[in-house]
Amino acid sequence: MIYFLLFWEFCKVGLFCVGGGYASMPLIQASVVDHYHWLSMSEFVDIFTISQMTPGPIGINAATFAGTKIAGLGGAVSATLGFVTPSFFLGIILARVYLKYGDIGSIRGALNGLRPAVVALICVASLSFILLAVWNTETLPTDWSTFSLGGIAILILAIAATRRKIGVIKVLIGSGVLGLALGLAGLI
């Protein structure tokens, strides 16, 4: 039963997560954290973080890791298949429609209208993680080191975005190494 439920919930997420993996995070959170309570918010943040660090699409990675945490290997398969099934069929259908009807203005308008919603979904996911880091003192540290590391990462990413001399991968690796060093030193 849990496998079918995982498939169905991630199928709904896959169907409605217009805009990619980051846009799917609030939908996954609503399902596995808020509705079913399969994962705590702290576990979800860990899954989100690992999903970003591993190769592949973040939404599929998150579905696989969440499914594994919830129901083992069978849960991973169920959640992953549920997540990709709608995209697979919608992709085939939309490709056929696009090839048949070409560039239709109303379709372009609908897609342009979805862009602000995608940005809003990503912002909601980011806000949820920020609020968790700031106010949930039971699961995450909220001392100076948390804010310092976050601030340094934001600063480096802002510089990287404007000058393009520092790659995102370098920032991720550097943040991980710095966090490990501070953790081993007992500072975080």
Rank of each mutant, 00 (worst) to 15 (best):
L5G: 01
L5K: 10
L6K: 01
F10Q: 05
F10L: 08
F10I: 07
C11I: 02
K12G: 10
V13E: 04
G14F: 02
L15H: 03
C17Y: 04
C17A: 15
G20W: 02
G21H: 01
G21M: 05
A23L: 08
A23C: 14
A23H: 03
M25K: 01
L27D: 05
Q29N: 09
Q29I: 00
A30C: 00
V32H: 03
V33C: 14
D34E: 15
H35T: 14
Y36H: 15
L39S: 01
S42H: 09
E43C: 06
D46L: 12
T49N: 06
I50P: 02
Q52L: 11
Q52S: 07
T54A: 15
I58M: 14
I58D: 08
N61P: 00
A63V: 01
A63F: 00
T64V: 00
F65A: 04
A66R: 00
G67T: 01
G67A: 07
G67F: 00
G67V: 04
K69G: 02
L73M: 14
L73C: 04
G75F: 05
V77K: 00
V77A: 07
V77M: 05
S78V: 12
A79Y: 00
T80C: 07
T80E: 06
T80N: 10
L81N: 03
L81K: 08
G82H: 08
V84N: 11
T85L: 15
T85E: 09
S87D: 14
F89E: 11
L94G: 04
A95K: 13
R96W: 12
Y98H: 15
Y98F: 15
L99Y: 13
Y101I: 08
G102L: 13
I104D: 11
I104E: 08
I104F: 11
I104K: 08
G105A: 11
G105I: 09
S106H: 10
G109W: 08
A117N: 13
V118N: 13
L121N: 10
I122Y: 09
I122A: 13
I122P: 03
A125K: 04
L127M: 08
L127T: 11
F129Y: 13
I130P: 07
L132S: 05
W135V: 05
N136W: 10
T137C: 12
T139D: 14
P141I: 07
T142H: 15
D143Q: 07
W144D: 10
S145K: 09
F147V: 10
S148W: 02
S148V: 06
S148E: 04
S148D: 02
L149Y: 05
L149G: 10
G150V: 08
I152S: 02
I156P: 03
L157S: 11
I159F: 14
I159S: 01
A160H: 03
A161P: 07
R163G: 00
G167A: 10
I169C: 06
I169D: 13
I169R: 05
K170G: 07
K170L: 15
K170V: 11
V171W: 08
G174D: 08
S175V: 13
G176Y: 03
V177Y: 06
L178D: 05
L178G: 03
A181Q: 02
L182D: 13
G183A: 08
A185P: 03
G186N: 06
G186Y: 12
G186W: 09
L187H: 01
